[in-house]
Amino acid sequence: MKKVCLAAPHLYEERNEKITLDRFLNGEQAGDLEIVKFEKELSSYVGTRKALVLSSGTVAIRLALKSLGVKSGDVVFWSSITYPPSCQAILSLGATPVFIDIDPLTWGMCPQSLRLAFQQLKEKGQRPRAVVVVNLYGQSADMDPILEICHEYGVPVLEEAAESLGATYKGRMSGTLGAVGIYSFNKNKIITTLFGGGALISNDPSYVDKARDCLSENRNDLMSPIAASIGRRQLEVLAKRLERKKEIYETYRRAFKEIGEIEMMNICDYGHSNYWLSVMTVKRGSVVTSKEIMEKLKSHHIESRLVWKPMHFQPDFSDFPFFTIQEGTSIAEDYANRGICLPSDTQMTQGEQDRVVNIVKQLFINSK
């Protein structure tokens, strides 16, 4: 039986083309040209002045932090739900992370919790060097109130848009609203450069130039010409990927609408999500738990995943401060306990998605 995957972008489903090494046998100059073209085409697509393509999104985060001047002893505010290795960058710089709860509607950083963190640090005579806002599962955080608070305190924003390439916020591309933004082209993202990959973007060229200067420390952080060439072709099919991802989400939303215990991740009307992963939550008090749903899907060779475990519960980060306006529990913890990332592969057939839906529905029917 074919395994139904969570998210596994295919390189050329819309065109019959094969990348070979032949095109790179004319020397380093030809390879460099592929990188330059990818950077220009990415900048043009998202509407920024400059881009720097790199070996991974994690590298992009580390260089973005450096470009913002983060150094040993600094404090950085960070959304608590994110991909854990991303936060290792801050430890490698000797800085201290302070984690901020998420908003229940946007799944992005909670502005009220962010303001609380600013106020409490101000009372201690401290101020963060930067704020890292994570656009979770393909949707932009509500950036206006976040940017307003950060501007008030004179602190730049790093927009961690690893999962949200192609999404928008009030007419602007996700990743372009902060001082600097990053994307990931890992093999499970909405487009991939196959060998990993990431990018740093900014409307202020000085940030990109500072990051590029840091590359002299480790040339392995550069994106390879082959990866850049693949990335260029992937940009050409991104629009169709976005359409397909939305179709997958809407199919789940319609199918589960009749099940009162299930809620799909809210999509805010201030922009467009890229629907990277279709995420559902099981309501509190449901007789069917999120783990039971995952176990049932696994028994049918269907891949799913829990929502990221909040960073303030991770062993490497549990001793660092966390701010929330919630009493008793945090939104991040609550969603991590009740959330499931459903199969969202763009190559998933309608029959395969129907099978996922029917298995989940049957669990709730049998529980009554």
Score class of each variant (00 low, 15 high):
residue 76 V to S: 07
residue 78 W to K: 09
residue 79 S to C: 05
residue 80 S to H: 09
residue 82 T to L: 09
residue 82 T to C: 06
residue 82 T to H: 04
residue 83 Y to M: 06
residue 83 Y to L: 08
residue 83 Y to D: 10
residue 84 P to L: 12
residue 84 P to T: 12
residue 84 P to H: 06
residue 89 A to S: 15
residue 90 I to Y: 01
residue 91 L to F: 01
residue 91 L to Y: 02
residue 91 L to V: 01
residue 92 S to P: 00
residue 93 L to M: 07
residue 94 G to H: 08
residue 94 G to Q: 08
residue 94 G to R: 08
residue 95 A to F: 07
residue 96 T to K: 14
residue 99 F to S: 09
residue 100 I to M: 08
residue 101 D to M: 07
residue 101 D to Y: 07
residue 101 D to V: 03
residue 103 D to M: 04
residue 104 P to F: 03
residue 104 P to E: 14
residue 106 T to E: 09
residue 106 T to Q: 07
residue 106 T to F: 05
residue 107 W to H: 12
residue 109 M to G: 04
residue 110 C to M: 02
residue 111 P to V: 10
residue 111 P to F: 05
residue 112 Q to E: 15
residue 113 S to C: 11
residue 113 S to Q: 08
residue 113 S to E: 04
residue 114 L to G: 10
residue 115 R to E: 15
residue 116 L to T: 07
residue 117 A to N: 05
residue 119 Q to K: 14
residue 122 K to W: 00
residue 123 E to R: 13
residue 124 K to R: 14
residue 125 G to I: 03
residue 126 Q to P: 02
residue 126 Q to C: 13
residue 127 R to Y: 01
residue 127 R to H: 00
residue 128 P to S: 05
residue 129 R to G: 03
residue 130 A to F: 05
residue 130 A to P: 03
residue 130 A to H: 05
residue 131 V to W: 02
residue 131 V to I: 11
residue 132 V to T: 08
residue 132 V to Q: 01
residue 132 V to Y: 01
residue 133 V to P: 01
residue 133 V to A: 10
residue 134 V to Y: 13
residue 135 N to A: 03
residue 136 L to N: 12
residue 137 Y to P: 08
residue 137 Y to N: 13
residue 137 Y to A: 08
residue 139 Q to G: 10
residue 140 S to M: 05
residue 141 A to H: 02
residue 142 D to G: 02
